[in-house]
Amino acid sequence: MTNNTNTTPDPDPPVESPRKRYQALIVDAPWPTGQSGKYGAASKYPLMTLDAIAAMPIGDLADDNAHVYFWCYPSTRHVAEDILRGWGFRFVDEFVWGKDQMGLGQYFRHAHETLLLGVKGKLPVRFKGQRSFAMLPRQDHSHKPEEIHQMVMRMSPGPYLELFARRPFPGWDVWGNQVESDICIPGYPVPSDIKVDIPGDTAVINDEEAANA
């Protein structure tokens, strides 16, 4: 039996690269609430549970002083604020995107979506003249207006990250099912960082799938 008593430090210990952190993030999560019907988002792409959205390490991706812009709609408006706080941000304001077409709704037919602004630490906005409402064209399902990226860049300093992105945008890192992602998020595999034998989208839609991925 050999006892290894060598206590000499490794002259070249592995160095873990620091994770890039962002001062402005857009999050467009695939909410499950009210989206299971024939015309809901479930017919377009996989959804995530509320618990899986809340457990995302958004706070770890953000700088100590950062802004997060979090998309929601009327039936997720209340829980979105709770999730923001769980990520380490305080809710400070909101922007409303008015659409030129009616959408779904059990009471009002919704023609808007809301972008919540959360702040981590202390980070004032760079532009004080931004209106809280704009009518912007509706495109394909859940495609948010590119004008939003420009608005965020006026309001907040970079680096910039869009989560659940559907296409690249100049000056931004992106992550999601439909893009070649610039980052990996442990427990949340996307096609660009994990290979699976399922055609089409491969988002994690519940905690059990995340554990088995």
Rank of each mutant, 00 (worst) to 15 (best):
N4Y: 05
N6T: 05
D10H: 12
D10P: 00
E16N: 01
S17F: 02
R21I: 11
Q23T: 06
D28W: 05
A29K: 05
G34Q: 04
Q35H: 08
K38T: 14
A41Q: 15
T49Y: 10
A52I: 02
A55Q: 10
M56R: 13
L61G: 03
A66L: 06
V68R: 08
V68D: 02
W71L: 00
P74N: 12
S75N: 06
R77D: 08
E81K: 15
D82M: 04
L84T: 02
L84Q: 03
R85G: 07
R85T: 15
G86W: 12
F89D: 01
F89T: 00
V92R: 13
Q101T: 10
L104S: 13
L104Y: 04
Q106D: 09
H112G: 00
H112I: 00
H112E: 10
L116M: 13
G118P: 05
K120N: 05
L123M: 13
P124K: 13
P124W: 06
F127G: 00
K128T: 13
G129Q: 09
G129H: 04
M135N: 04
P137T: 12
Q139I: 04
D140V: 14
S142H: 05
P145H: 02
E147A: 15
Q150C: 02
M151A: 07
M151W: 13
M153K: 15
S156I: 09
L161S: 02
E162R: 02
E162W: 04
A165W: 01
F169N: 12
P170T: 12
P170M: 03
C184N: 07
I194L: 14
K195Y: 05
V196K: 15
V196L: 14
V196G: 10
V204G: 05
V204S: 13
I205T: 12
I205M: 14
